[in-house]
Design a protein around this nucleic acid. Sequence first.
RNA 1: CGGAGUAUAGCUCAGUCUGGUAGAGCACCGUCUUCGGGAGGCGGGGGUCGCAGGUUCGAAUCCUGCUACUCCGACCA
Length: 443
Amino acid sequence: MRLSRYFLPVLKETPSEAQIVSHRLMLRAGMIRQEAAGIYSWLPLGHRVLRKIEQIVREEMDRAGAIEILMPTLQLADLWRESGRYDAYGPEMLRIVDRHERELLYGPTNEEMVTGIFRSSVRSYKDLPKNLYHMQWKFRDEQRPRFGVMRGREFLMKDAYSFDVDEAAAKRSYNRMFVAYLNLYARMGLKVVPMRADTGPIGGDLSHEFIVLADTGESEVFCHRDLVEMGPPGTDQDWDSDLQHLVDQRTSLYAATEEMHDAARFEAEVPEELRLSARGIEVGHIFYFGEKYSVPMKAVVAGPDGVERPVHMGSYGVGVSRLLGAIIEASHDDNGIIWPESVAPFGVAVINLRPGDEAVDAACQQAYDHLTAASKEPLLDDTSERVGAKFATMDLIGIPWQLIIGPKGLASGEVEIKNRATGERQSLSLDSALNLLSAKAGS
RNA sequence: CGGAGUAUAGCUCAGUCUGGUAGAGCACCGUCUUCGGGAGGCGGGGGUCGCAGGUUCGAAUCCUGCUACUCCGACCA
């Protein structure tokens, strides 16, 4: 992409409404624009990152055996009356009436609908297990939206739903999601801790929240320090096994959110120097809730004995749009965002310090073509901004690598590359720079 | 949902108390100088002062109603 043809409305000044760093940086970097309280337009840069995160989530869900579908945003009220949640959900649910006076709602979640899809076609235990997921915009009419995309009213969520023949099988489905979640967050450069969580109004017996530790987090969390440093399980697993040892490894150490916290147990189980109490951002939540929906909605399968039984279900959510905020909270400095390479909107920023200079233009074009061919998704700054502004903008939007090409360096056959995260720079020939960047930059 | 605020140029904000021709910085356009970390000069464009009503010779400013947004708290699969 050439910056001169792109749409990147960066702001020099901080908009007054933004209180936390991720919100400020997303607005300043021209990633989002607020349209109403808790409702945002995604501008090109933000949209690119959103798509990258989506793709990582998709790949890890697919790897764990989940199957992607896409359900609509609008749902019929009658479907929700089957589960009893139409009346139970309260004012957070946006209710809509169409021209025929039909009662609809903008989906805050999809348990009812996916159960409807499942029960219409699955009859036998032989078709289980199944895990269906989608990534779709949700709407929850929060009383007080804040923190930009971290707590919006409209937000993009990946929600998966598992269907199993009994509780033991459902636990295996739960474990698959547990492991897949740890892997997908790790791919985004996040340190995430799973914590026992309250199941809340959705109901159920077994639930974990996945928490990114950050000072600006909305909830207080308590855990064993070792959990923070423990790496992800890795993607190379036997996904048909129960994966129980991986889950046990991470659930045997103390970790709980505020509402589940037991100070006495915390102090008994965790030596003082390993006790960590911090604030966290919830970026995922998984539940096993058994027959909560399958019984009232009559989602049943015939077992080997020919008897029909309600299926055992779980649901698994990742806050896709919230993850942008969480990643920025976890990775930024005074100059702006520092994108992990896996989710960066562009892989390399090619900075032309003197557009119009024949040699510089040619070198930039060569670099741009080379990096494009190498799938490094370069962003070429070919504008006539002053160099200070160019550097500031590229630092702000957080492209992992900068390739700086100007007349002075070029005269002695050199260009400069800079790593956004470390600030480290080196001068070298254009060819060496391109080889180096092709080898390590980008996804 | 309780409490506190805000609304004036694309952005950040003065001006409102005490009614009298709509302001600044940044951004934008033109031009000159400058040119390797958010430069400077000169010239220029851009505003139904959130909306509706009222008071007044005259309202951004005073009064009434409404709307939107923000912050603190409670709430939050």
